[in-house]
């Protein structure tokens, strides 16, 4: 199968799902995004990204955990799949490999 492309925002959301470890749903993911990256994104963006990730098979979801605060509506809780974690690891690996290839001074010089 063709390797699925994972966008930058998708990667961050996927990571959030992984971090929240089964507790991730629309609200927690949006809040975590805001808290950790300082980015304010619309809920629709997060929602769409989650659906896209699910379509690609990186996360799975189930309904559950209704509270009074939500008017008795259930949450859609997301969990990372094996495919998702492998994709994350591959990205991590790729980055690491690339970092290894970086000549020691380049970044510092360029950085100044």
């Amino acid at each position: 199968m063709r390797r699925t492309y994972l966008g930058e925002f998708e990667e961050v959301v996927l990571l959030m799902v992984a971090i929240l470890d089964g507790e991730g749903y629309g609200v927690t993911i949006s809040e975590a995004l805001e808290a950790h990256t300082g980015r304010i994104v619309t809920f629709g963006t997060v929602h769409n990204t989650l659906i896209r990730l699910e379509e690609k098979g990186f996360v799975s979801s189930e309904l559950g955990g209704a509270t009074a605060e939500r008017g008795g509506r259930r949450k859609r809780l997301f969990r990372i799949t094996a495919l998702g974690s492998r994709a994350l690891q591959e990205i991590q690996q790729l980055r690491q490999n690339l970092w290894q290839l970086l000549p020691p001074d380049t970044l510092r010089l360029g950085g100044i």
Binding site: G26, F43, T67, E69
Partner: peptide, 16 residues
């Protein structure tokens, strides 16, 4: 098919 969780999420966010 996603109305339930989205409406719930938005209600929760509103409170927040």
């Amino acid at each position: 098919n996603t109305l339930e969780e989205v409406a719930g999420d938005l209600d929760e966010l509103y409170t927040y």
